[in-house]
Design a binder for these strands. Sequence first.
RNA 1: GGUCCCAUCGUCUAGUGGUUAGGACGCUGGCCUCUCACGCCGGAAGCCGGGGUUCAACUCCCCGUGGGACUACCA
Length: 472
Amino acid sequence: MNQHKEIRTRFAPSPTGYLHIGGARTALFNWLYARHYQGKFILRIEDTDQIRSTEESTRAILDAMAWLGLEWDEGPYYQAQRVDIHRELVEKLIDEGKAYFCICSPEELEEKRKEALRTGRKPKYDGACREKGRTRSADSVVRFRCPDYGVTVVNDVIKGTITFSNEELDDLVIERADGYPTYNFAVVVDDAQMGITHVLRGDDHVNNTPRQILLYEALGYEVPHFGHVPMILGSDKARLSKRHGATSVMAYKDMGYLPEALVNYLVRLGWSHGDQEIFSLTELVDLFDLNAVGKSAAIFNPDKLLWLNAHYIKEYSLERLTACVKPFWTAKELDVSDQDFLNHAVADLRTRSKTLVEMAGNGQFYFADEVTYDPEGAEKFLTPEVGEHLQAIIRELPQYGDYSKTGIEQFLRCFTAERGVKLKIIAQPLRVALTGRTVSPGIDDVMVTLGKERVVGRLAKAVAFISNAGKA
RNA sequence: GGUCCCAUCGUCUAGUGGUUAGGACGCUGGCCUCUCACGCCGGAAGCCGGGGUUCAACUCCCCGUGGGACUACCA
């Protein structure tokens, strides 16, 4: 009967920080799964932790989702706004005898836990208040009565069948003393009421799943499908964290990464399609499915992400790429108002930049009013002997008609042939004179992009620099 | 400690009982070349260990070992 039921997935971050790499991949998998089956992707903010949740975090997460291109069909719903519903259902469970009040203090519980650990017993709640018939009081919590025997089976769409003994599960708190529901309860109620058919999340939730299933059953809800995606680890195989480098999605934007690169990288962490490495978003929607998601954890590899970023920098349309780098130059207070000039510069730079930040740095010389010479480069290449060549170019270039790439090539070829020198001899000095550096895009490209006027101007300055250096 | 998950080059992975174990990043040799890149061609590098099952195991089963997650009135 559910054969044609619409697929509904969700991403449910807690707004206690930025959107991190792992969360982004979870969101991506949910989004892709929903899109692939023409279902719906729902965004829900789990902000029931009144102390740690912030509005900036919510904003940051939404911004990051938007940047990645993961638009949602419903929401964002805010869990904290649904507490009345949660409380009502807690009440229902109490009435039905499936939950009870507990007045054990956190300190007391902590003591018992330590004691249990010390004596080698399971550190689970001992059920002290279970049969006491307590009533609500200022610091009472509500606990769910878990079955003491039997098993709960999770049919995980990624990991397969996982069986848990109910004895391992204790009576978890479902409503805190502050009246707010706990995660395990709220997530069940919300997922059920929002009609979520597939709960895809990090596999750090596997152990929560049996108790959630018990809650679904106690509440009379249909149990959704669960899929637990493996974790993303740092280079030391520990859970990915700040000490492994940037973990915030938006930090990657700031470092000059393209969203396509991050998405492509993330999707391949745990999912594959034969030998294919490069996937566009639309291609992913077409190809993505859960059966190709792996079971083992993956280590985050910044080098591969960098390679993908370089790939997308090469593949982007010039217009789009230019629009993306432009802010990085603007931030350096460079004049990038000439769109045509800008486009040419970006075209020169794109094959030699792995990030937009790198590109902005490499291409700074195009827009600088004054070229600053790399000291070593200047010493090596801006010598009296080349000063003469540069002067000759200043004389001959304005006369030269064809100022295209092939024209410049031709010009340099003739120029060097006439003077009996190799292009090699003249290229590096020209490069330093025009860019200030010994490394740059092809000298002909640089000359064409800069334009005759800037070239002659910069060469004149270089000649002046050389003669000044000679006097000094 | 307990519960659960995982295991193919350094890393991401393909593999689905019979393959010279494939691809990609990175590394590396070469070509191209005005520098640096890009691109192209080549190379090194892997089935965690031990038992089974089978004519045949990277592949299936068991046991180790290793790694990870969870074990909150956080999510």
